[in-house]
Amino acid sequence: MLVLIAGIIGINPDKPSEDLSAALEGFVKMTDAYDLAVLQKAVERVGALICAFPAHPEAVVEGQLLLRRAGERAGVKTHGSARPSSPSTALRAPPWSGELAHLDRPKIIDAMSRVARYLSDGTKGLLWTSADDLAAYTIEAGSEPGAADGARYGVQSFPTSPLEMMETYERGRGVRLERQSLGSLSEVEDMLAQARASTPPSGHPEYIWLTYPKYMVNGTWDYETPGCEPGPGIK
């Protein structure tokens, strides 16, 4: 089955790397999310769509809708959506679409300065998903017999706290990291409330980063039942 991965090289690069090019059957470049002619050409002959657009509002919302509509016109039934949000609160996709939810994680370890940053006391267990595992789960979900009927997946590679992650890093690299707490959860919540009160909705990119540590640490983004049992295509 031919699979289209939209956004595979990110926002800025003009073309994929040599290694990536060797693994692709073809590549088309869009000028922006509204390049409908190129978008329609990209979905020809594909059996499934996987959206790897970056977490930018225009790309995630309008870009994905245009991709879905192009897929509909081409008869594509399986669509893996990019949705960096809580699976319990996000809107459910149409029944013909498969979704794979994941959470972007802020950078905790700065290897250059050897500083490790965390919120609160760093003991709250967080859910982590590696890029390789996310790719494997996406392919597995899109290859299932009932993929076109729609499904929702909350996956993870492993749970661990920031402090445990730092200790593992130190043992593996043979270095010592400086611990740096970024403040308590209540302090982050106060900063977020002040930013929302003083910034119009159109300016949300200026403070949205404050929501990530808030919802990760208070447990809002924890999966109640991670649907990540290994399938036949996952090692």
Rank of each mutant, 00 (worst) to 15 (best):
His102Ala: 09
His102Tyr: 12
Asp104Val: 08
Asp104Trp: 11
Arg105Trp: 09
Pro106Asp: 08
Pro106His: 04
Ile108Leu: 04
Ile109Thr: 14
Ala111Asp: 12
Ala111Ser: 13
Ala111Tyr: 04
Met112His: 10
Met112Tyr: 07
Met112Pro: 11
Met112Gln: 09
Ser113Lys: 15
Val115Ala: 15
Ala116Ser: 15
Ala116His: 14
Tyr118Trp: 15
Tyr118Gln: 11
Tyr118Ile: 13
Leu119Lys: 00
Ser120Pro: 14
Asp121Gln: 11
Asp121Lys: 08
Gly122Asp: 11
Gly122Thr: 14
Gly122Lys: 05
Gly122Ala: 06
Thr123Trp: 07
Lys124Arg: 13
Lys124Ile: 09
Lys124His: 11
Gly125Asp: 12
Gly125Glu: 02
Leu126Ser: 00
Leu126Asn: 03
Leu126Gln: 09
Leu126Arg: 00
Leu126Val: 10
Leu127Cys: 07
Leu127Met: 14
Thr129Gly: 05
Ser130Lys: 13
Ala131Met: 07
Asp132Thr: 12
Asp132His: 05
Asp133Val: 03
Asp133Glu: 00
Asp133Ala: 06
Ala136His: 00
Ala136Arg: 02
Ala136Asp: 01
Ala136Tyr: 09
Tyr137His: 08
Tyr137Glu: 00
Ile139Pro: 02
Ile139Glu: 03
Glu140Thr: 01
Glu140Lys: 03
Ala141Pro: 12
Gly142Trp: 09
Ser143Ala: 07
Glu144Thr: 08
Gly146Glu: 13
Gly146Cys: 05
Gly146Phe: 04
Ala147Arg: 00
Ala148Val: 06
Ala148Phe: 04
Asp149Lys: 15
Asp149Leu: 08
Gly150His: 03
Gly150Asn: 03
Gly150Thr: 13
Gly150Trp: 01
Gly150Phe: 05
Ala151Cys: 12
Ala151Lys: 12
Ala151Trp: 01
Arg152Trp: 13
Arg152Asn: 09
Arg152Gly: 08
Tyr153Trp: 15
Gly154Pro: 05
Val155Asp: 09
Gln156Cys: 12
Gln156Lys: 12
Ser157Trp: 13
Ser157Asn: 07
Ser157Pro: 06
Ser157Gln: 12
Phe158His: 01
Phe158Val: 06
Pro159Glu: 11
Thr160Cys: 10
Pro162Ala: 14
Pro162Gln: 03
Pro162Ile: 10
Pro162Phe: 07
Leu163Val: 11
Glu164Phe: 09
Glu164Arg: 14
Met165Phe: 09
Met165Glu: 12
Met165Arg: 15
Met165Cys: 01
Met166His: 07
Met166Asn: 02
Glu170Leu: 06
Glu170Trp: 09
Glu170Val: 02
Arg171Trp: 02
Gly172Gln: 14
Arg173Asn: 15
Arg173Gly: 08
Arg173Tyr: 08
Gly174Leu: 14
Gly174Met: 06
Arg176Lys: 11
Arg176Pro: 02
Leu177His: 06
Leu177Pro: 08
Glu178Val: 04
Arg179Lys: 10
Gln180Met: 09
Leu182Val: 15
Ser184Gly: 03
Leu185Gly: 10
Leu185Arg: 09
Ser186Ala: 08
Val188Thr: 04
Val188Ala: 13
Glu189Cys: 10
Asp190Ser: 15
Asp190Met: 09
Met191Val: 04
Met191Gly: 03
Met191Pro: 03
Leu192Trp: 08
Ala193Pro: 11
Ala193Glu: 05
Ala193Met: 10
Gln194Ile: 15
Gln194Phe: 14
Ala195Gln: 01
Arg196Thr: 11
Arg196Gly: 02
Ala197Pro: 05
Ala197Gly: 02
Ala197Lys: 10
Ala197Trp: 06
Ser198Glu: 00
